[in-house]
């Protein structure tokens, strides 16, 4: 073994270890997993436009907090209330119907390992009047609902799941959040 320059190799090892182990450790130590949200707050998600306006908004009821580890405002926001979670993803297809988005979410669910659809989807509408499809989810000790809403070039994919007892208790809040989803004017 040739040990010349070992001190430089050791230095590089330290740099690489800091990047792939040190930073995650600092992240785990400092990051709060949940960020509380005042009841009735309107949260926006999707790529930011000038003035920090994002294409999709929803109203958060009391008792829910943002799951910072599973939120990236550019594309997805995840809220938690106890063991029940509610996740909204913004998608930007070239052109899509709710049916196409529903089929797409099925493929993505295979990748994320989340519960699969237990029922055929039925039409759903937000308070704003955006149409979509919704269905029930079941699997791995969890139940929930999934829904998709689509304007041709903008869509949302909502997944809400939790343990059966907790989810049933919060089902009305979940449905209320789904109905509160708004597509901003510029995104129509």
């Amino acid at each position: 073994m040739d040990w010349s320059g070992w001190q430089y190799t050791a230095g590089l090892t330290a740099v690489l270890v800091v990047l792939c182990a040190g930073l995650p450790m600092i992240d785990s130590a400092v990051r709060d997993s949940e960020i509380s949200v005042p009841p009735g707050s309107v949260m926006q998600v999707g790529a930011a436009h000038p003035g920090d306006k994002r294409p999709v908004a929803l109203t958060v009821p009391a008792g829910w907090a943002v799951d910072a580890r599973d939120t990236d405002l550019f594309s997805r926001i995840t809220l938690r209330s106890g063991p029940t979670r509610f996740s909204v993803s913004v998608v930007t297809p070239r052109q899509a119907t709710p049916r196409q988005l529903w089929d797409g979410r099925d493929k993505i669910a295979v990748l994320t390992g989340g519960p699969r659809a237990a029922t055929r989807p039925v039409p759903a509408t937000t308070d704003q009047g955006v149409t979509g499809l919704a269905g029930e989810l079941a699997g791995r000790g969890q139940i929930g609902i999934a829904s998709v809403f689509a304007r041709p070039t903008l869509g949302t994919d909502v997944t809400a799941t939790g343990p059966p007892e907790d989810f049933r208790h919060k089902a009305d809040q979940v449905r209320g959040m789904v109905r509160s989803i708004q597509f901003t004017k510029s995104a129509r």
Binding site: C20, D27, R31, D52, V66, A68, F74
Partner: peptide, 26 residues
């Protein structure tokens, strides 16, 4: 890419904690 995937995500998390979700996203 292997190390960057881990480090960028952790860095993003630290930024979120320090400056908020919106700042970290932008």
């Amino acid at each position: 890419p292997g190390v960057a995937l881990i480090a960028n995500e952790a860095f993003g998390g630290i930024l979120t904690q320090m400056a908020g979700l919106s700042f970290a996203d932008r």
